[in-house]
């Protein structure tokens, strides 16, 4: 038998190894994550504050920011509605082909953004399936706003559903059944019971989807046509400025996106904190033998 302290010692690495692992891990994170993040802001401010301000107040940069925000705001409601619908069907009901459906929902994550862009080019482009019809009716999809919106919808589709499915599965359907047996209508049940239960998971999915919607590059790049001031989203604008050797301009725009990323990380951390708390609440509500199963 070993004494408790001896066991504890056996349970942790020797001091030198701990220091080594800590150094390797944190060093890796520093070089690959912290340094690039810092570099964005340093490069953006390399020519001083006025140059930074000028770069951001440029008309084309402004319109790129506006376009990016518009696309995200337009796409997110679709993500929310369909994400909740998908999670509701999958988490609360049993049906054939459910696991296939879950895999299909994940599909947009697996497909290369460039392929996604190409796919919609093939459908709506000049030589595409509907290209002739669209041209005849003077509707522009590709190299215009609708194309950007559609590929962004494709790319961001999985986020909300993926977040909600495991959450709603863990919550089970007892509370909803209780609401119905107490006389609630479907809408009352959803608004008063389901929605409050999933609000943090929903918000989490929306935050991730928003980050992706605002930052998407490859897919949007294929269908946007890069028309300055019209179909140039902020990430595409960064590319154009960078390729024109306008480093300050490129990094100034990039810094806006990096700030978005930082806000995303903070918001994510806050929401995760709330979700952990609710998971604990859920665990506390279940009898002990079942509580262990809750992730």
């Amino acid at each position: 038998m070993m004494s408790a302290p001896a066991l504890r010692r056996a349970n942790t690495e020797p001091r030198w190894l701990r220091s080594l692992l800590l150094g390797l891990g944190l060093g890796f994170l520093f070089f690959f994550l912290a340094l690039p993040l810092l570099a964005v802001f340093v490069e953006a401010l390399a020519a001083g504050w006025p140059a930074y301000r000028d770069a951001l107040s440029d008309g084309e940069t402004r319109s790129a920011i506006l376009l990016t925000v518009f696309v995200a705001l337009f796409v997110l409601p679709f993500n929310v509605v369909v994400g909740v619908a998908a999670a509701w069907a999958i988490a609360k009901f049993d049906f054939r082909g459910k696991s296939l459906l879950i895999t299909l929902i994940d599909l947009p994550f697996a497909v290369s953004p460039v392929v996604v862009g190409l796919v919609f080019l093939l459908i709506f482009g000049a030589q595409g399936l509907f290209g002739g019809w669209l041209a005849a009716h003077d509707v522009k999809v590709v190299f215009a706003l609708p194309g950007i919106v559609i590929v962004t919808m494709f790319i961001t589709f999985p986020f909300v559903a993926r977040e909600l499915i495991p959450l709603m599965q863990a919550q089970g359907k007892d509370e909803e059944e209780a609401a119905i047996s107490l006389g609630a209508t479907g809408w009352q049940m959803f608004r008063r019971v389901t929605l409050p239960n999933i609000r943090w998971g929903l918000l989490y999915g929306v935050i991730l989807a928003n980050a992706r919607a605002m930052g998407e590059f490859g897919a949007v790049s294929v269908v946007s046509g890069h028309i300055r001031g019209e179909t140039n989203t902020l990430p595409l604008h960064v590319e154009i400025l960078y390729n024109e050797y306008n480093a300050v301009g490129a990094f100034a725009s990039a810094s806006v996106l990096a700030l978005l990323a930082l806000v995303t990380l903070v918001a994510k951390a806050v929401v995760e904190w709330h979700m952990r708390r609710e998971t604990r609440m859920l665990a506390a509500e279940l009898p002990p033998e079942k509580a262990g199963v809750v992730p």
Partner: peptide, 11 residues
């Protein structure tokens, strides 16, 4: 109906 695990509305 009283559920086995009560199904109280946690919110």
């Amino acid at each position: 109906f009283v559920f086995q695990h009560y199904a109280l509305f946690r919110h």
